[in-house]
């Protein structure tokens, strides 16, 4: 076998392997969520903006006293986002048919980007569907805040010595673990929030759309977005009109890095063998003659180095 043929073969094999294997095959494949995972179906058409969910969350999670009472509607004058002091907030959007209220909290993704981005492994996706985190190991790097496609994690900026990330944990510690619905769900007077098995909620959502097609946009936000989320949304107005990001796509955020991460083992295992092979081939050639040419070459190299 000629050296040129060998190199050609290597090139072709390399190209074929990088093209032939699909993106997903590099990683662990897509994860559809735990079969017994719980979720919450949010029906925006029912919400009246009473902020009871905010109040219940505040007490359940023992968060600091709010700046204004929870029945004060003046907070709707600006668009808020979850923070260390409030794991859930409701925003108001003025629409043609009247105001539409939208509750924001962690969506508890099937494949959480926060979990992927965390290098100390603080995050866990529990079998009940909650995305929880261990604040004891959190180093406060805020990678998860950047990774989250929904801008959810808050940060305890108020703590000078040990700032950590803070977010909704679906009341895992106090309620979900014991088979109880989250505090926000339980307090909601209008049953905007329906708690149940995520798989059942998707069926219920589609059934509501089918029964009253004039009432809803024919889409459940979160059914497929970024690989599916535990919180699912029904709306009477297009989702981008009420603060939802319609541009996220259906691929989990981890897919953006799976391909790259998949090449890491290849670099670590195949490359050493490959280049050792090259080295051995080239040194074997040395032994077989043409010493003169090699010497001349190395001489010129030495001269180059001197320069």
């Amino acid at each position: 076998m000629k050296r040129r043929d060998f190199l050609k073969g290597c090139m072709i094999c390399g190209a074929a392997s990088s093209l032939g294997i699909s993106k997903k095959a590099w990683g662990s494949g897509s994860f559809e969520g735990y079969p017994e995972g719980m979720g919450v179906l949010v029906d925006l058409t029912r919400c009246i903006g009473c902020r009871s969910c905010e109040a219940a969350c505040n007490k359940e999670q023992q968060l600091p006293e709010p700046k204004v009472p929870f029945d004060d509607q003046s907070v709707f004058e600006e668009k808020r986002r979850p923070s260390e002091e409030a794991y859930t907030v409701v925003n108001r959007y003025e629409q043609k048919g009247g105001p539409v209220y939208r509750k924001i909290q962690c969506n508890h993704c099937n494949e959480p980007a926060c979990l992927t981005s965390c290098f100390v492994n603080a995050y866990t996706k529990t079998k009940e569907g909650a995305v929880i985190y261990n604040s004891k190991v959190c180093v406060g790097c805020r990678n998860c805040m950047i990774a989250c496609p929904f801008n959810v994690p808050g940060y305890s900026y108020s703590s000078a010595t040990n700032p950590v990330v803070k977010k909704c944990i679906l009341c895992y510690d106090t309620r979900l673990k014991y088979g109880k619905p989250p505090a926000c769900v339980e307090i909601c007077p209008q049953e905007v929030l329906t708690f149940g098995y995520r798989k059942d909620l998707i069926k219920i959502g589609h059934e509501r759309i089918r029964e009253t097609p004039d009432k809803y946009v024919d889409h459940i936000y979160g059914e497929k977005e970024v690989g599916g989320t535990g919180w699912l949304y029904l709306s009477s107005v297009p989702f981008d009109k009420v603060g939802f990001d319609n541009t996220l796509g259906n691929e989990p955020i981890i897919s953006n890095v799976k391909e790259f991460l998949g090449t890491v083992p290849m670099v670590l295992t195949i490359w050493p063998a490959l280049f050792t092979g090259f080295h051995l081939l080239s040194t074997r050639k040395k032994g077989h003659g043409d010493d003169h040419g090699h010497d001349a070459h190395s001489k010129s190299e030495q001269e180059d180095a001197k320069k």
């Binding site: 009871s52 109040a55 219940a56 505040n58 007490k59 006293e65 709010p66 700046k67 204004v68 009472p69 929870f70 029945d71 004060d72």
Partner: peptide, 12 residues
């Protein structure tokens, strides 16, 4: 629960 009425936040 609502931090309202008699329990309204004093800071506010």
């Amino acid at each position: 629960l609502y931090n309202s009425g008699k329990s309204a936040p004093k800071k506010a």
